[in-house]
Nucleic acid binder design. Sequence first.
DNA 1: TCCATATTTCTACTATTATGGAAATATGGA
DNA 2: TCCATATTTCCATAATAGTAGAAATATGGA
Lengths: 123, 123
Amino acid sequence: MESKNAVAALAALAQESRLAAFRLLVVAGPEGMPAGEIGEELAIPPATLSFHLKELVHAGLIESRRESRSIRYSLCTAAVKELFEFLMEDCCQGRPELCGVQAEQLCCGPPPPKRTAKRRGAS
Amino acid sequence: MESKNAVAALAALAQESRLAAFRLLVVAGPEGMPAGEIGEELAIPPATLSFHLKELVHAGLIESRRESRSIRYSLCTAAVKELFEFLMEDCCQGRPELCGVQAEQLCCGPPPPKRTAKRRGAS
DNA sequence: TCCATATTTCTACTATTATGGAAATATGGA
DNA sequence: TCCATATTTCCATAATAGTAGAAATATGGA
């Protein structure tokens, strides 16, 4: 990922309405949500929402597909991952013991509830 | 983390010079880097750099400490982690199998080189 | 074809942000 | 105290971004 792409993605997220829409789509998962539903949930007028969604699409963070009369938006998970990797590239020069970020488990709640004793079985 | 804080952090990162400075500090780790060194590395005039560093500090992403004549900046790793968690909260409604993000290993290069056969030793 | 629904484009207005020179401030050493 | 170094504050200018009404476009059904 190039710096310019990352800046575009971050700028897209750096706005209340867009961040809220993004987070809605993070939760929605691959199914995504139609624009109208997003707008209703966030109480944003259609023209404004359309503008913001387009910004997110343009930044490559979400994508749209028409579905009958609605347009359904969903997250581009690969782009999100790339962005995170770009931000944390060479973190602590590869000395994870120095690093408090330890980005494991940022996603999908509490997946491995315990990892103490036995290696946890197939997920 | 509140939405406003996240927007502030993202806005701080959504700028070429600041993003570059941030990434420099990600690599630098807990030691951090003095302002002058950052400015030299990025070829940014002092006044401009000072402005941008202050934005990052204000957003809570980095912190500064005076060290003799220099001011040394370093990453606030906890804030970065919080930001990532906020962005990915309830990702896929807790169904990680749906999610391509799987944010493991965003940090500190390639820590577990292989995880195929034997359970890898204590982290 | 005609209408209702869903979303986007157009447009103008307002507000915020980036830039960098010059001057000011803080530190340490002679 | 005086000077050099390191960084910040002040300021004006230029550029970019957010907002939402009204009109335009696309889809599906009667």
